[in-house]
Simulated scan of single mutants.
Amino acid sequence: MQLETNEVKETPLLQASNLVKHFPMKRGYFGEKSYVKAVSDLSLTIYQGETYGLVGESGCGKSTTGRMILRLLEPTSGSVRYRGKEVTHFSEEELRSIRKEMQIIFQDPYSALNPRKKIGKAIQEPMSIYNIGDAKQHKEAVLELLRKVGLQPEHYDRYPHEFSGGQRQRIVLARALAVHPAFIVCDEPVSALDVSIQSQILNLLEQLQEDFELTYLFIAHDLSVVRHISDRVGVMYLGHLVEEAPTDVLFSEPLHPYTRALLSAVPEPNPKKRRERIVLSGDVPSPINLPSGCVFHPRCPQAIETCKKEVPILRELAKHHRVACHLI
């Protein structure tokens, strides 16, 4: 359930510090090395019971960040602490001990399900892996999870292709909940769904969060969706976190020029209200060859000489409101 305005729970569940991820490219004709700089020096804290929204253009490093936090991708450098424990250098055995507490929901639910496996068995599989209960208890637990996510008992013996996209996302949700997680990365879980179905899944996520005391990292590019579900929002651009604030503060008082440009593109449902549209010039630079200084300066309408030379520090200007900009 979304927190009240400007209220943020103060118990850190997960802390990512100075995360970096560089993907090596194939060597050129002369043997030179090059890297895709997907995430650069990113730090964020997610508090217990909240929904942290992570937004930005496609290719800005949102999904890579979520996968690094779960150790599905190994960070090039940096630190991830979960419940105070440093997990970045955990062995496979140590990682297994906390893996069931940290789950993920992918954008495409169909590709996340085995087309040859009935959904009852698919939801039950994590319970078997972690030795949670016996076969009879597994089926009872799966039927209860199906009910929780809005599906029926008769769906237990059906295959993934027999369901709609929204139903498949409910199945993936049930499977993520099967091992009683505390933290779930929602990687654009509604972007492939119709608008009417999106609202149903978002409401379901909020209800499940309340019922199971969950914490979410909610990755999306749709700002209206993020505004609906998030307690705090982080804005990414080219692998950098450029602004972070409680949701109401970010949408009412955006400070970074990139955040302002993003919000200006959100459609205004009231025809009597006028919003100044901020059109950014140029294209997004290549993550292989990032600009010097502030990575946003080639497209920033307010850039000054300092922006071209110095990387701005993400500074806290108010409680839970951080901005990386030389102009602020």
Rank of each mutant, 00 (worst) to 15 (best):
M236I: 09
D222A: 09
L208P: 03
Q207E: 13
F218M: 08
V235M: 10
I201E: 00
G234N: 11
H221M: 07
D211I: 08
N203H: 04
G234Y: 03
E210T: 08
I201K: 00
V225C: 07
L217N: 06
L223A: 11
L217D: 08
Q207G: 13
M236W: 08
E206R: 14
I201N: 02
H228R: 15
I201Q: 02
T215K: 03
G234L: 06
L217R: 05
Y216Q: 02
L214Y: 01
G234K: 07
L204F: 00
L204K: 00
L214M: 07
R232G: 05
Q207R: 14
Y216M: 06
D222I: 04
F212S: 09
N203T: 03
T215P: 01
V226N: 10
I219L: 05
F212I: 07
V233S: 13
T215M: 00
F212H: 02
Q209S: 07
S224L: 14
V226E: 12
S230C: 13
L223C: 10
L217A: 05
I229V: 11
L208A: 02
D222F: 00
V235H: 09
V235L: 12
V226I: 12
V233R: 08
A220D: 11
S230L: 10
E210V: 00
S230V: 11
R227I: 14
L204S: 01
L204D: 00
E213S: 14
F218P: 05
M236T: 12
E213D: 15
L223E: 10
Q207I: 06
Q209D: 07
T215A: 03
H228M: 15
T215F: 02
L205D: 02
G234S: 12
L205F: 04
H228T: 15
H228W: 14
V225S: 06
N203S: 01
T215L: 03
N203F: 04
V235C: 09
I201D: 01
I201P: 01
L202H: 02
D231A: 09
I219E: 09
A220E: 10
L223G: 06
L223I: 10
Y216I: 04
F218Y: 11
L208Y: 01
H221I: 04
